[in-house]
Design a protein around this nucleic acid. Sequence first.
DNA 1: GTCTAGTAAGGCAGCAAGGC
DNA 2: GCCTTGCTGCCTTACTAGAC
Length: 307
Amino acid sequence: MRAERFLSILIIISQKGLVTGRALAEHFEVSLRTIYRDIEKISEAGVPIAATGGKGGGYYIMENYTLNNLFLNKKEIEPLIAVMDNLKFLFGNNPQFNDIVLKFETLRNTEKKECDNLSIDMSHFSMEKELREYLFLMNKAIEENRILEFEYINRKMEYLKRVVEPIQIEFTDGHWYIIAFCTIRKDYRKFKLVRVRNMKLGGVFKKNLISKEEIKKIFSESYEKNSILVTLKFSSEIGGQLSEYFSKEKITLLENGTYIVEDFFPEDEGLKKFILGFGNDCEVIGPDKLRKKMVEYIKNIYSKYND
DNA sequence: GTCTAGTAAGGCAGCAAGGC
DNA sequence: GCCTTGCTGCCTTACTAGAC
């Protein structure tokens, strides 16, 4: 704890140039006396920290002394800083996270030129404010083993109450999820954050010792169990777009210029909408039951426009 | 379980230096 | 001179680890 504070004090002084002992004491929530002792120990360790008294005074690191990037090289720092930039936007109200960001910003000062060629955006345009608030609550709940209560919007636009024991925050396919044990469904579930409303922190729960790998396996098995092998035929016009949705080995180019794609999909409403998203350029070849479902689905749409 | 030593931290008092 | 800030010494408290 103390060694960690020493390093943070050094980084803060290095980052800000001049910092008062009082400011450091407030930041670390310790007494001024403790900060003086810390500064003394840091100086004894050979770091040239100097001080000026009076108004406008404080601690500073003497010229020509820089903090080395001990563990990371330039190429490793670049993607980390891009990610930290994003996470700062999302977790900015977490004091512990802000300390980490400060450390990375210190690295940025020495690596600035190398950080400009990578940009990552993990925000969501429709619920920026809620996203930040929910991520903060989720993070806190996981750290303190606390229940999360929220309303979850299902496909029928019904608001269903959920009480969950959170395990992990995940960012996949451009969306944030909370992986948790649902105390209502008595099962592990993945909740899409854009469907969550009115999230609140609840009481403390006893942490289940299930590993992240086991949970991953549960979701993977569930996905496979609910998935079917689908064969799709695409027109030559849409060929270029297929690589956005499918891996190379799943796409076969036929002699007539059309494409065949074979892949596993979860068998739900989303699949039909996904296929229809390609419009007239996609045809279901198999399985037959999906082809029949598509026919019914399209008939329903047609009837809406044929009054 | 109890005692002891070490460590970390807080509080207080007094002093020095610098800026306004 | 007053205010702000740093510096130091002394005492106390709380916690932890090790010895018995």
